[in-house]
Design a protein around this nucleic acid. Structure first.
Lengths: 189, 189
DNA sequence: CATAAAACTTGATTCAAATCAAGAATTAGG
DNA sequence: CCTAATTCTTGATTTGAATCAAGTTTTATG
């Protein structure tokens, strides 16, 4: 809770102390997930926003033939949510699975949105977050369109070195649109 | 101009007639582009929002080795902009090129944003457009992560059949992360 | 801390899509 | 409407990453 408070203090400096306390009091959902556990069932809507206190997650789309297309990860001390489901309220196209034992605290979308209405700094913050998410997705589109596995690897390694410390490389390989064998060979140089 | 007016009347029904007229009067930029012409120079910031009255465009990222990674298209009677540059004000990571003779009308970002401040329905509309752009990019991410060229083709054909009528297939092939030869062979079935 | 499970590495082989090539069809524009 | 330029198709060949396989290292957890 303390870390979450610091994060918001840092990212939304214009929010007052009392507002922040009120806001944090809405983060009532506590969850503990074991390795391999899913954050929610297949195809359910997922209208929670979580903060990862401990652990790591993979976010992926499951194709009809049960292949996993990994679209992102969640690490310690960052927010975790099913963005399309959170925004639209529709059932999710993603699954989110714990990569190791993890603890989360969360807030429901309706509580978040209703607090946003009476707290303009939070509204501004959230609008910026959506814009940033869009921009980062445009960068990622370039990442995965590049032909050469070598270049894809270099680009992401440069931008997100943390990834390679936090996440098993076989998942990073899928994220980079290659096999673990290919990634392993690239790392040699 | 008439078509643009109808589009906004349809998409922002809550906006008043006088407001709409005021807004449209800010669309003062007129441009004519010949085939192969660029909307703006390499790496320039691009803070205009355009409406395509006639023509078609490709939006692509140019890699260091001058390969073109196509990230989207613009068609008749839709909006055209360099989204990351428009939102951040930074210089663009994309180039936009006319695929045939085209005419555009445009508005500068500062005029658009300042009108948004005094027109809440436009602000709401724009926020929704950003969210929609994000959601469509998440769908696209899945599109291009899929291994099989066949499946990538089917998915996009199903969702955007118009594409295949408006745009030369060699560009669609690049958009789908395959060669024109591969796309041609897929179309046989 | 022991041991079972998971992840990673490395080499050999396969295979699907890229490349190369050339002719046919379509489109642009004077 | 004609001609040149561009795009599309189809076949032959090449190639680079996937797959297969097996051994090694690392990590999880009772």
């Amino acid at each position: 809770m303390e870390v979450l408070k610091e994060m918001f203090q840092h990212q939304i400096p214009s929010v007052s102390d009392t507002e922040l306390s009120d806001f944090l009091s809405l983060w009532t959902i506590k969850r503990q997930l074991k390795r391999h556990e899913y954050l929610y069932g297949r195809g359910r809507e997922q209208q929670h926003l979580y903060f990862i206190q401990k652990g790591a997650f993979k976010i992926f789309h499951e194709t009809e033939d049960l292949k996993e297309l990994i679209v992102g990860f969640g690490y310690k001390h960052t927010l975790l949510l099913d963005l399309p489901s959170f925004v639209t309220g529709l059932s999710s196209i993603y699954r989110i699975q714990a990569l190791r034992q993890s603890t989360l605290i969360g807030i429901h979308q309706r509580d978040f949105y209703s607090f946003m209405e009476k707290c303009p700094p939070l509204a501004t913050y959230w609008r910026q977050q959506i814009e940033l998410a869009l921009l980062s997705r445009l960068e990622r589109e370039i990442d995965i369109l590049i032909d050469s596995p070598q270049k894809r690897y270099e680009r992401v390694l440069q931008r997100s070195p943390i990834l390679f410390q936090e996440i098993p490389h076989k998942f990073i390989a899928a994220y980079l649109r290659m096999t673990p064998e290919t990634l392993s060979r690239l790392k040699r140089f």
